[in-house]
Design a protein around this nucleic acid. Sequence first.
DNA 1: CCATTATAGACAGGAACACTGACTATATGC
DNA 2: GCATATAGTCAGTGTTCCTGTCTATAATGG
Lengths: 160, 160
Amino acid sequence: MERCDDRTGRTLTEQERTLGALLRGPYQVLATRVYGELSRRGYADVRPAHGAVFRHILPEGSRITELADRAQLTKQSMGALVDYLRDHGYVELHPDPLDGRAKRVCLTERGRALQHTALEISREVEQELGSQLGLRRMQRLREVLEELNDLLENQRVVPG
Amino acid sequence: MERCDDRTGRTLTEQERTLGALLRGPYQVLATRVYGELSRRGYADVRPAHGAVFRHILPEGSRITELADRAQLTKQSMGALVDYLRDHGYVELHPDPLDGRAKRVCLTERGRALQHTALEISREVEQELGSQLGLRRMQRLREVLEELNDLLENQRVVPG
DNA sequence: CCATTATAGACAGGAACACTGACTATATGC
DNA sequence: GCATATAGTCAGTGTTCCTGTCTATAATGG
């Protein structure tokens, strides 16, 4: 039986870094810093999962099903996130005047304040990284990532 | 009370895409495709969480604590992942000859085959994305991401 | 050599997150 | 109207990761 005794001291995936790994590292750092900073600035009850609501809700409000579709979650999961955010004062639920089954989810003042703060923190972290990485490189990274995101969005659901 | 009735049809975060969002999108697409393809190629029992082991294990084997440190997980969480992978034939546990408390986790033949296949799939997906995005752009993306990862790794733990 | 302290790992319990299936109430289309 | 579709809820489950506690072994300093 072959024993494991190479003694190279490097993993296989270190020798060949996958694109996924290269994306995951920075993303995790970003997410940790943004939610950590939010916690310090008075929004300790907002967790990463709730981003699914704040990222997708429209200024005029959105229905739970809409949010679920956009966030690629089930209605049940999105319903739970919305319940939590309502209980914590970030959103309000209004009956939809056009559809008696539906509810409109709307940001409260506090919800908008959080959204604003989160964007602010994101900008701060990006600037800080940019100053370490070099502004030109950060600019290039952003450009290519925007193109990649556009590409992926357009092929996410085959239009029927 | 101010009602929510802007009717712009765009979210705040769509107007200003954060770096985090730009990284998350492609990462999720990559991860979904890689693990989906692994499932189709006979590794349906390997889930994304198990990547923490395969990404960090050394060719000569690693201890659970080492893997936990590198993957930034607790020893307990890593222990559970290793147990699962042992039960499914991807790793073996040997007592560490140098430390009676420790166990060496080593990949089995099947574990190495999975690792190989996962890297192969990652390359395939990256190539496919590259052909859609443009090879030059993908090349630039990779370069900048590698620099960013190096930067973040070097400041992860302040060297004591 | 022995007492203290540190480390490797396991056991128990729980929180966060997202899922499936089944259900009610309302809307829509013929 | 009746059949079908949709919005949202209720109940239950699985995965992933955590904290706290414990045992066994190792390392260190008198």
